[in-house]
Design a protein around this nucleic acid. Sequence first.
DNA 1: CGCCGGATTTAA
DNA 2: TAAATCCGGCGA
Length: 201
Amino acid sequence: MEAMPTAIALELQRPPDLAARALLGALLVRKGVALRITEVEAYGGPADSASHARHGRTPRNAPMWGPPGRAYLYFCYGMHWMLNVVTGPEGEATAVLIRGAEVASGLDDVLLRRKAARATPGLCAGPGKVAQALGLDRSFDGHDLLAPGGLELRPGAPPETILAGPRLGIGFATPEDQARPWRFAAGDSRAVLQRKALHLF
DNA sequence: CGCCGGATTTAA
DNA sequence: TAAATCCGGCGA
């Protein structure tokens, strides 16, 4: 029989900024590795000049137009994979970029993938680092994060406080979209980039 | 078909 | 502060 929609699945149907905040504290699980999400950014559909959806549907961003709960992975700067969680109703092309995380379990595997000797606060602080820590690549593009197997999104403890501020690395967007405070971070985490650019939500 | 530049990371 | 590194999207 059909499983009841999980709380997290319901949250992902909401507008991207709300879905983004709901993802803080949630877990990304792959095999023995679990990462607690500590930093995210919301991206709107075609109307958001910072979004990959701004040029409409293309082969690369196709997963963004699909149902919520899927992964959208893209390759950036010739070397990094970025993990997004598709949100909103199907066809809206909204998504949340996972920008930072803490290792909840599987530290040894993460250290190997990140080529790090020991755990530091910055180990998974940054979108490229998150994908690398989970060993993600093109093969995970379009993956259903709400289904068992492979890479899964699971409920976690939400942060006590949430920080908010402008999104990073979107200098190409309109001033209005650059100013939109759609970056969110867990107030209780050290794995957050540029904390001073954030304020209490 | 060629060019431009990017939702970045790292080391110097 | 800059190099690494490559592919998508756009204009010609």
